[in-house]
């Protein structure tokens, strides 16, 4: 699953560690999500969406809905 996490993080000038800490996950977890190695659970996806104040579908793309500017 593709996502815009890296772009959204960069817009706020946050490091992976900063984002991880705000989400309650490790820096490695943020990296795994950004690089598509790990698809976040639904609770974590909602947490990410709340943090960036965006709907989930504007952050994550399943390949059928298109999108993704990363």
């Amino acid at each position: 699953m593709r996502n815009r996490l890296k772009v959204l993080r960069a817009e706020r000038d946050w490091s992976q560690a900063e984002l991880g800490g705000r989400l309650g996950v490790s820096r490695q977890a943020v990296n795994a999500i950004e690089t598509g190695k790990h698809d976040p659970s639904l609770p974590l996806a909602f947490k990410i969406a709340r943090l960036f104040a965006m709907p989930i579908e504007e952050i994550f793309f399943d390949g059928e809905s298109g999108g993704g500017d990363d």
Partner: peptide, 24 residues
Amino acid sequence: SREAGMTEHAGPGERAEVARRNRF
């Protein structure tokens, strides 16, 4: 290193990440 690691002025997220890593 800026991409992945800590910034000079650690924010609340980075401080939480340091605490999590120390526990680990």
